[in-house]
Nucleic acid binder design. Structure first.
Lengths: 221, 221
DNA sequence: TTCGATTGTTATGGCGCCCTAAGAACCGAC
DNA sequence: GTCGGTTCTTAGGGCGCCATAACAATCGAA
């Protein structure tokens, strides 16, 4: 029941999250994992073999890997810690919205069970982190909210922001400044042609332009 | 200005703290360091050589090491983080007095400058941690309080607890249960013969027996 | 269907930090 | 001074995780 090493945790998290976003149900390729973790495919290949031997993934030669139940649990454990930390740092320590991700990325590997429990309690066992992502339970339950990206909505649709991708601090800051945060109400006004920005009314008042790449990071219900 | 690795930080901290408690001013031996970190003397010898090359210590062959100014600064940086974390965990997260040390021991290596600053601010830049140890400033200033151990006091002396050693959780719990916490007022009543316990009046009311090993961990002004 | 490009795998090696084993320097007793 | 025990250092390996280089499998375009 020892905690896997930070590196192993990072790989498991990456496999889980790639499987979540790709939504194909199929295996995750070595190069996808390598890119997500900014390592060479050779390194990823070695590590994935090890994860297979550890029972965290099933690896099919030259196809990719899929998480086992143990792997899913371990990944969700890390994600739970990550999101609890993000929430704590943002709400209790006033750390800016766009910095909590980096900090949590490190601390998630080093916070004890006991401290995690104290934090969860202090926060009142929240269900979502500041970016809108669901926080898994200890048992490994996650609310998976089927959602569409802002970039896919037709003109005239209205929706509520569910969550935003948190990989890029600058992007988060950009969205935050425009009010595109979880639970914001939006109406899609129009798409500028030739891959131009999407103009969106936010919370009934201001109108903002959202470039396509940013729109892809906003998930709505 | 990159942060040294956790291992290096641990060595620097150990050297600093050995120099502080031994109070001889002289060099710290390889075996002292090895024992403090629970590694073999061979490992310590190798690492101390590396610290020398990095400019953190001056090593005299077969004598031991002494911290350079850079080493002292780096050690105090870690100690500052450690004590801030202890304070934060105890006061803001209600973590038990005897558990904060272990948790801080890990986190001190992974908390960013920015988070440390937020924590210090949140706490109002405290000067002492929950065990009474002074918290160094960012510049590396520490209040060094000359103190005596409870074990050295003659019968009849009265004093105020300044700080307690925090290495051993069980010992901390023992002291806490008896009210031997920083700022407690004590009067030494009598020493039982043959290495028996010291009987002490705490805060004017209750009288407790303190075995010699515990008394050595209590520093008074 | 064949061949070049892409993708994945297997050596092999480096770096950090630990270990054990063996040897070298120092200490006190005699 | 010499000898035995202690302390320190050096030598050589292991483990985790990364890299590069070379090779193998697969895909797709002509």
């Amino acid at each position: 029941m020892d905690r896997p090493s930070p590196a192993v945790q990072d790989y498991l998290k990456a496999v889980y999250q790639l499987g979540e976003s790709a939504e194909g149900g199929g295996p995750i390729t070595t190069s996808q994992v390598a890119e997500a973790l900014a390592v060479t495919t050779a390194s990823a290949s070695n590590m994935l073999k090890k994860l297979d031997q550890m029972g965290y993934v099933d690896q099919v030669k030259r196809q990719g890997v899929e998480l086992t139940e143990a792997g899913r649990q371990a990944a969700l454990e890390v994600i739970r810690l990550h999101r609890l930390l993000e929430t704590y740092l943002a709400t209790k320590l006033g750390m800016p919205w766009d910095e909590v991700h980096r900090e949590a990325e490190v601390l998630e590997h080093h916070v004890s069970e006991a401290l995690a429990a104290r934090i969860a309690e202090e926060l009142g066992h929240p269900e979502r982190d500041p970016h809108g992502h669901p926080i898994p339970t200890i048992g490994g339950q996650v609310a998976t909210n089927p959602s569409r990206r802002l970039s896919e909505l037709p003109d005239g649709s209205d929706a509520v922001v569910d969550r935003v991708d948190d990989h890029d601090g600058a992007l988060l800051r950009f969205l935050f400044e425009r009010g595109l945060v979880p639970d914001a109400r939006i109406v899609v006004l129009e798409h500028a042609p030739f891959g131009g920005p999407i103009s969106v009314r936010v919370d009934g008042d201001r109108v903002v332009d959202v470039p396509p790449e940013a729109a892809r990071a906003v998930h709505v219900e």
